[in-house]
Design a protein around this nucleic acid. Sequence first.
DNA 1: GTCTATAGGACGATAGAC
DNA 2: GTCTATCGTCCTATAGAC
Lengths: 176, 176
Amino acid sequence: MPKPSARERILDAYEQVVIDQGPGVATLEGVAARAGVSKGGLLYHFGSKDALVDGLLERLVRLNDEDLEQARRSPEGVVRYYLRSTITDVAENVPLNRAMTAAILLLSTEPRVAETLRRCTTAVREVMVAEVDDPVTAELVVLVGDGLWLRAAMEGKESPILGQVDTLISRIEAQI
Amino acid sequence: MPKPSARERILDAYEQVVIDQGPGVATLEGVAARAGVSKGGLLYHFGSKDALVDGLLERLVRLNDEDLEQARRSPEGVVRYYLRSTITDVAENVPLNRAMTAAILLLSTEPRVAETLRRCTTAVREVMVAEVDDPVTAELVVLVGDGLWLRAAMEGKESPILGQVDTLISRIEAQI
DNA sequence: GTCTATAGGACGATAGAC
DNA sequence: GTCTATCGTCCTATAGAC
């Protein structure tokens, strides 16, 4: 990644168009317009639409790994950190949330998207299994996280669960 | 629905193509080929691609409502029934699973899909809140169900959770 | 009811000026 | 690096024969 600025701006636009208007509108021209460049300008940075998707997926994996690293180091523990950060990501416009939501909405486009999402889930599961003694609880945390991600993709920032978060986390933690 | 046979066969083909090859390949011609008719034949039953999507979504809502009705009447209780049927649907090729997986993969195409999925989740939540005394547990069940659906869309029939299902359900039920 | 043929439009990608 | 212009392709939808 030699020149981050333009690339990142185009990726931001891509995510935003997918989330706001749906992947159907996420044509090269639509993304370019949102990024403030022309179609030709976009194609200078990403040589094809596949390259654009790859750029988004690479960013997603990086953000997911970074989040897990922070979860591992977190003093409140991986479970509470992961679920709380996921819920926060859903409620606010955190980069990881934008990338993950866009990826889920793009599940259709190509097998690489599903593969990358599986990789993210697997990474989360490995951390949970390693840090939480009980494997069933670990799996439960991953499942609830997946549910939150799907919900974010379906209904955006508003979700009936936001007021019950802490109670929910406490219950899950109590099982460890 | 006067003549179910041809319509249903086309909808089956549509779901299958979306699940197996992705919505990108799910063109009118691809669906028609899988259904054993020509493009013109398909368009006689569904006047447009939008009508085809609508047909899938209507079927999804119907199957979801029927499943919830069965859950309500189930002697083992809504929680156990819902989670077990969701997991079974994920593992095997139950109609509800096929429709739900296809819909999630089609999240991309149009806002109506997200709207319908929200409606399904809302219906599940209403049943859970009505039947389960504790609202936090009700929300947890809906969340875990969503997680299972997303997982089905991502990784198909194989999931590491399948061996831990009953333990997981027992733990959730124990909280009521 | 189901087919073939084709019109009409949109998208991805290339070429070349600046 | 970014632009405009254009080509080729694929898809939806229509028209009309059978």
